[in-house]
Design a protein around this nucleic acid. Sequence first.
RNA 1: GCUCCCAUCGUCUAGCGGUCUAGGACGUGGCCCUCUCAAGGCCAAAACACGGGUUCGAUUCCCGUUGGGAGCGCCA
Length: 468
Amino acid sequence: MSVRTRFAPSPSGFLHVGSARTALFNWAFARRHGGALVLRIEDTDRERSTRESEQGIVDGLGWLGIDWDEGPLRQSERRACHDDAIEDLLARERAYRCRCTPDELEERKRATIARGEKWTYDGRCRDLGLGSDCGSHSVRLRLPEEGQLAWDDAVFGASGQDAREIGDRIIRRSDGAPLYHLAVVVDDLDMQISHVIRGADHHANTPFQIAIYRALERDPPLFAHVPLIVGPGGKKLSKRKDPVSVEQFRDEGYLPAAMTNWLVRIGWSHGDQEVFSMQEIRELFDLGSVNRASAQADPAKLSSLNHHTIGALPRDELVARLLPFLAALAGRTVMPSPELLTLVDLLRERSKTLVEMADHARFLVLDEIPYEEKAARKHLGKTVEPLLREMHDGLAALKAWNEETISAVFEEVRARHGDLGMGKLAQPIRVAITGRAVSPGIFETLTVLGKTRSVGRIAEALHYVRHG
RNA sequence: GCUCCCAUCGUCUAGCGGUCUAGGACGUGGCCCUCUCAAGGCCAAAACACGGGUUCGAUUCCCGUUGGGAGCGCCA
């Protein structure tokens, strides 16, 4: 049997990290088994579905490096197939028309629960044999009177529920629209999906869907329910408090490879291995190693993974990814200069995100470098004036501009001031040329900035020290 | 409320009856290195939710309790 998986998000909002992981698992499983991944947009809820959101999902998947083989298909465009299936079910009396109104249902449900009994549809219209001329009506699936609706879940193992606990549920609304469960089953059947890999929130819905497969006299696919990603404290992820969209992470400067590495390890493991490239994910991912417990997504781990990924990225690619962030910072297009390439290598060890990296690079990219107040107060006091002056003159006189010649100037000045500690001299210079008390090594930083700008900035600092 | 699911360090997890004085990673703390910040090196603290069984032997199997989650729509 050829493997076919599907990712079926509803296009309301952005691509959620939980959805992204589901997509990743489906992708990995399909690739691992030489199968196909289908992208299906479940847009039957027209009020909440938007075209922008669909585009956002497509963009997000593309950014993550998750490619698919068919689609995007839209569920809304398959309405005729859903209608046909319902008519077929009706014709074979596996479904029936129901005239009960929502209000009546609500009332009977309340009364039943008040009596301390469990509510499922009471079957009032079940054997009425209502025809299409019965007025406003919904359509219900006729469930077996007894027996289990069971399946062997690839993650949760033997699963199932008594048919009578579910009751005859609606598959077509009175306005004629097919319900989600019916639509999914029909679509998965038509698209010949072999493995349904989806969030564990669907685990409890599966028995009813199995009932639909049976009514349609078709074999269900294999189900694999993956544990939900939850927020801090094991609570439901909050869209307000927790970062949940992949766009958000992308904008904060996380790399797609770090995201997928992070996501794949939430609820899945391969021994003690922590780092997985997309190549490894598609070679190693297996449903048998997926956990059953819901898991929290730890942003600190993503941060660490991102740092690791930044460190391992080829320089050209890293620069290319950094450029947009630099442009945002500078308010103009930034071209990759040789100095920038050098700086990027100095910065990769110190940056958790591209946003951070761009920020560390601002001294090279921006012309105006305001001093950070605290740094200036601490390192650019009156007493450093002679140091700055001597450094300025010494550096300005250099013929060759490199770490060796620069370091020699530092040594001269320090010696002249009674073997002044390196920190006493490096910090003022650092603030003078970067505006901050933090940067890569001072020789490297000066080298990258270049003689003209370095000397110019020290002159400005001199002016600042003298006149405030 | 009902049905179902889950439960190892703060977090993600390894473990599939003896190899566990429970391993890894992130995070946290300390030390070293050091011109700042990182990085790096070394070290440390940190978990089998609880109670019963089964067994010669339970982190591993079974049952309860507790805690968390999902589902119970003419939403998807």
